[in-house]
Amino acid sequence: MTQITDRSMRTAAFKPEADDDMLICRCEEITKGEIRRAVYEGMYEITEIRRWLRVGMGLCQGQTCTKLVQRIVAKELGVSPAQLESAAARGPVRPIEMACMGNEKGGVC
């Protein structure tokens, strides 16, 4: 029997922390405090944090901050980072110019 996740469980007030202002996602300039608040507001999944704050959706595609975000979210939820599902990986894994991506070898049939 799989456990369903109750998204209403968090009711305590949000407590600011001293380093809330520290940047975590360098590309989108998202702070630790913003991530913590998002969790408090119900974004329990890494995917939701990304969608809500654009964390890891910038130029580097989360290559720098993914683990850091995971650690912060896990701590807020009181679980181990390994229990959190990673966001889906999407191609292209390196940025490609539109002109290049549209230029397929062998041309268009």
């Binding site: 940047l23 360098r26 590309c27 130029l59 580097c60 720098t64």
Partner: peptide, 22 residues
């Protein structure tokens, strides 16, 4: 300089991943 905070950035990963040096 970054878009939101207008903070300076420079070389960080040096291998084309982090994009701080753009």
């Amino acid at each position: 300089y970054t878009k939101k905070r207008h903070e300076p950035r420079g070389i960080f990963c040096a291998i084309g991943r982090c994009t701080d040096c753009v």
